[in-house]
Amino acid sequence: MAGRWWLLPGTLCTAEVFEPLLGALAVSPQQCRAVRLDRPAVEDYASKLASVEDDDIVLGFSLGAIVAAHHLDRMRARAVVLIAANPFADTPDKSAARLDQLARISAQGPRAVMTAAWPDQVGPAAREDSAVGQRIVAMAEQTVQDLPAQTELALRRPGAEPMLASARSPVLFITGREDRAAPPDRATRAAAIGGHELVLVDGAGHFLPLEAPQACAEAIRAFLLGRGQDRR
């Protein structure tokens, strides 16, 4: 897959969350530019994403996908792929869960909290894969300093409905059918705004790029080929 890839990881994640997926697509690290989510407002990322060019692919996961969605009306990319995205404003229960996570991690540390939490964030097959859990915990330990800003970003953002309706790039949503954090009905609603493409992955939870990298890669490859965008 030729071209430059912009990587926007999620809460408590590094760009490592995309590694199995990018490997399946034969995308090299030299092609990638990671955007660190360390600022508390959607607009804080405008200057970085202003550098996205026509031949680039933007790959967002979870909170990173939400940030990407809020810039769809400005970015003109080869494709924007939103994985495990819920681009609507938080409901009260979701906001409360974010604040609770921040409080627990502040008190107990990321390893203890995420070791207990990750099995509920993945699909049935991935719960038996300790390597997936180890990656999730390790990423949380590397990014815990960014959690206050990430929590504020998630709480403060409005819904991205206007940007979805006026997207300037082809958009693909990929969501796991077992995703509890960003349920598939939210992705279905979001994709319908603007007539974007949606792929639901059976058996997968929230951490799709780690749980089902091959399925994600196949969805992305088909999306690019279907639009005549694969310029390998």
Rank of each mutant, 00 (worst) to 15 (best):
G109H: 00
P110T: 12
R111T: 12
R111V: 11
R111G: 08
R111D: 14
A112N: 05
V113M: 03
T115L: 12
T115P: 11
A116C: 03
A116D: 13
W118I: 02
P119S: 09
P119I: 04
D120G: 15
D120W: 00
D120T: 15
V122D: 05
P124W: 08
P124D: 06
A125Q: 08
R127Q: 15
R127Y: 12
E128K: 15
A131S: 15
A131V: 05
V132A: 11
Q134Y: 14
V137H: 03
A138K: 01
A138F: 05
M139L: 07
V144D: 00
V144G: 07
V144M: 00
Q145P: 06
Q145I: 11
D146G: 03
P148W: 05
A149H: 05
Q150N: 04
E152V: 06
A154C: 04
A154L: 00
R156N: 00
R157E: 07
A160D: 08
E161T: 06
P162I: 03
M163I: 04
L164Y: 01
A165W: 07
S166C: 02
S166T: 06
R168K: 15
R168I: 09
S169K: 03
S169H: 03
S169C: 02
P170L: 07
V171N: 09
L172H: 12
F173C: 09
F173A: 07
F173V: 11
I174E: 08
D179H: 14
R180N: 09
R180C: 10
A181P: 02
A182Q: 11
A182R: 06
P183H: 13
P184N: 10
P184C: 10
P184L: 14
